[in-house]
Simulated scan of single mutants.
Amino acid sequence: MKYRSVFDIIGPVMVGPSSSHTAGAARIGRVARHLFGTLPDKVTIYLYGSFAKTYKGHGTDIALVGGLLDFDTFDDRIVKALTLAEEMGMEVTFHEEAVEMEHPNTARLVLEKGDEKLEVVGVSIGGGKIEITELNGYTLRLSGNQPAIFVVHRDQYGAIAKVADVLAKHEINISYMEVSRRAKGRTALMVIETDQTVSQSICEEIKHLPGMLNVVTLD
């Protein structure tokens, strides 16, 4: 399918053949890119449900890759995303999966660069809105609509309170918080959506708290 402009796919207000398959897909890719922090060398994309069945016709493939290149949903470079990714040295592979997921518009993105690897599962829930439901094996529910901070920490008492105390000291209001762990007493992932952007200096302060292993922000 050939497109003349990005508006053939997404439309002026994120409306294309299907906002779920285009605008939502672009947002999933862009959140994954921001979490990874840099352009990956290799991306493997697993598509489920209706994503797997119609991703080429609805432009889901170029939308996901456009997001991975850090293009917003209205960026007219999205139509050339596959070519641009190749020119930038980003290898992209798509896999159509037959496994039934909880939501039909689901994509699993595996981003790699050297020894760095990130695995993100995103769902396009309609109208260009998304949810990130998994990050490196941790279950979560992130809208991507607000600034967020991700804290990997040892699963021990007091960890949540210490992070909350730092945010409160800097007058950062928490709008949503969720903690996920793989096994009791091992490591856990704290996901906090906030009303204000969390600065790098605040992240460093949290990093130096006892039991903290890694801190990443999403603006």
Rank of each mutant, 00 (worst) to 15 (best):
R33V: 01
L84M: 14
T73E: 13
H34S: 06
D75I: 07
A32T: 08
R30S: 07
T83G: 12
R77G: 08
T83L: 14
H95G: 01
S50N: 15
E100G: 04
M101Q: 13
V110A: 04
L109M: 12
T83E: 15
F36A: 04
F71L: 14
G57D: 01
H95L: 09
V99Y: 14
R77P: 06
A107L: 04
E91L: 06
R33D: 02
V99M: 12
R108T: 14
L68T: 05
T106C: 11
D72F: 05
G49V: 04
D61L: 03
Y48K: 07
Y55I: 02
T73F: 11
M101V: 02
V99S: 07
H95A: 00
T54I: 05
V43K: 04
G37L: 09
T60Q: 12
M101K: 15
F74R: 09
P40T: 10
A107M: 05
E97N: 03
Y48D: 10
A107D: 00
E87Q: 15
F36E: 01
L109I: 15
H34G: 02
L84H: 11
A63K: 04
A81G: 12
R27V: 06
D72W: 02
R27I: 06
A85P: 13
L109V: 07
D72V: 08
V79T: 12
F74P: 02
V99C: 03
Y48P: 08
A52Q: 03
F51K: 08
N105H: 14
V79Y: 00
V65H: 10
V99I: 13
D72H: 10
H95S: 01
I28H: 01
L35F: 07
V65E: 10
L35C: 07
K42T: 08
E97P: 03
T38S: 15
Y46R: 15
L47E: 08
T93K: 12
Y46G: 06
G49P: 09
E102T: 10
D41R: 13
V79P: 05
T73L: 04
D61N: 13
V99A: 10
P104G: 10
R27C: 01
G66T: 07
R33C: 02
D75Y: 10
D70G: 08
I28C: 02
L109S: 05
T73G: 00
L47K: 03
L84E: 15
T60M: 09
R108G: 00
A85K: 13
T93C: 00
T44E: 09
V65K: 06
T60N: 09
R108I: 15
R108D: 12
F94W: 00
V65T: 15
D75C: 11
V92W: 01
T44W: 00
D72Q: 08
R33G: 01
D76M: 00
A52L: 02
T44K: 08
A85D: 10
T38N: 12
L64N: 03
M101N: 06
E91I: 06
P104Q: 14
D76R: 05
T44A: 09
F36Q: 03
